[in-house]
């Protein structure tokens, strides 16, 4: 069975998929972490000054772009297959 998997290239494909998954998972964890830190601070600031809602929202979503980078890299990895 293993030999068959090697012969058909199934293992290669699997490894590529795992690589893509790691790319997006890492980026997502990084973005989530950053947003958590900013989000906490933003909610704290909003409790003092509710009009900071939009500034807080903007600051909170800035790290989101990191996930997009992850997505693009994952996409490039998948292209290898």
């Amino acid at each position: 069975m293993v030999a068959e998997a090697i012969a058909t290239g199934a293992i290669d494909k699997g490894l590529i998929a795992i690589g893509a998954a790691i790319a997006i998972a890492g980026a997502a964890i990084g973005a989530a972490w950053a947003e958590k830190e900013i989000g906490t601070a933003a909610v704290g600031a909003m409790a003092e000054k509710p009009e900071l809602f939009v500034s807080g929202l903007i600051l909170t979503v800035i790290p989101e772009t990191i996930v997009i980078f992850g997505l693009v890299i994952a996409y490039l990895i998948i292209q290898i297959a």
Binding site: E64, T65, V67, I68, F69, L71, V72
Partner: peptide, 12 residues
């Protein structure tokens, strides 16, 4: 460029 790449979310 990161700003432009950010528009990839339109697709994502």
């Amino acid at each position: 460029f990161s700003n432009m790449l950010s528009y990839a979310r339109l697709f994502a």
